[in-house]
Design a protein around this nucleic acid. Structure first.
Lengths: 212, 212
DNA sequence: AATCTAACGCGACCGACGTCGCATTAAGAT
DNA sequence: ATCTTAATGCGACGTCGGTCGCGTTAGATT
């Protein structure tokens, strides 16, 4: 489903408005320090009237959610080298590269921070990551098919495990992100997958089911 | 250095004001939905005048940073069962328990979300986690001393690895947190530690040192 | 105990955010 | 081509967050 013109519902130039607004929102988000994002600024930059923005999106949180939703729809290339180990490593390095480059990091960093400001934004962020992980999980699926990973392993869980430590550093602990950290995260995730931790029955070493 | 009354610098009731303000801030943060935190509300609840809050803390971001800094100073009990595996598992479960209990989760959740709103808040959050991790790393140190983990293993890195997936779910992907996830995160971290991933020279399997 | 002074209380002011009613435009239908 | 109607443009208004100057309080000093 192309996002261009086929507006299903009555009303019509909305598509163009939406495109302009998303572009302006992304630009604003990446420029202004976290807090001082304002609907007025988006209105001025996009040329769309303030009232329209409030009507359609309800406020800054809605604009941020919209930007995330739109971004989530764009597909994004997944490594396919023939080796899970290498693919997962590349996945982690892609995150590392994105958030290390001072040029590239601003938009996603600010977007995530902004999304956490409101329930709506948080929801959109969750959907965004769900979409991304669903795509990236392909590398794990291929790994299972090739017999490089145990057959029961949850592909999405592997992707999450490989990237979680990086986001943890970026947003919670604030420690610098370096290549070894990315490589290490990927290796640890693969280790866990091979140990069966991502399979339906991780290990039956729990003390006792304890029906409560 | 006790934080009670021995105010080193001139001016004096400041200590009481600070305590009231921090309490009011924490209460506000846990009640209001992310965005609509206001200095006025903290002023009313604490009984401290608005202008004073702006003077001492500069705004909402400063208040949040203060709340975090104050919270970080409070020590917090670390498991010590005699087994690293169990200790790390308990650590992860503590995070799980905190963020699952609808009663307990509100404050830390909102505090983290709020901290990500401004550079000041983010900095305070980093310091907060640094303090927490420094304390929690003790379990790994004991594990190394007992020979349960390789001697070079970075204790803090182990703690981070054990908790990162949980925060990742909580804030980025929004997936529900369950006990298996906590257990799995702990197990994966221990696996990585034993594989030497957290030791200075993770593995020398990098293509070539490349002095650059 | 008397004094000094930093910190807080107070109320008014300014500006920006968000809202509202109405005019205008353009998409879709006949 | 004309008409219908939803969506946008427009400007004004109310409200609230944030600032400022001054008076007051209470810690600290001697």
């Amino acid at each position: 489903m192309p996002t261009a013109t086929p507006t299903p519902r009555p009303g019509g130039r909305s598509a163009r408005v939406l495109a302009d607004v998303v572009a302006a929102t992304l630009a604003e988000v990446s420029e202004k320090p976290y807090d001082q994002l304002t609907v007025d600024a988006v209105a001025n930059r996009s040329g769309i009237h303030k009232a329209t923005l409030y009507r359609r999106w309800g406020g800054m949180d809605g604009l941020i959610a919209q930007a995330l939703t739109t971004s989530a729809e764009q597909p994004w290339p997944i490594p396919d080298t023939g080796s899970v180990d290498e693919d997962v490593r590349l996945l982690a390095h892609e995150v590392y590269a994105t958030f290390t480059d001072p040029e590239l990091r601003t938009t996603p960093t600010a977007l995530i921070a902004a999304a956490l400001r409101s329930p709506r934004g948080a929801e959109a962020l969750h959907a965004f990551f769900a979409a991304r992980h669903r795509q990236a999980a392909e590398v794990a699926v291929r790994g299972v098919e090739r017999g490089e990973l145990p057959s029961g392993a949850d592909p999405v869980e592997l992707v999450r495990a490989a990237t979680a430590p990086l986001y943890h550093r970026l947003f919670l602990t604030g420690e610098p992100l370096d290549e070894p950290a990315a490589t290490r995260a990927a290796a640890a995730a693969l280790l866990a997958a091979r140990a069966g931790l991502f399979s339906p029955e991780p290990q039956d070493n729990s003390p006792s089911p304890q029906p409560r």
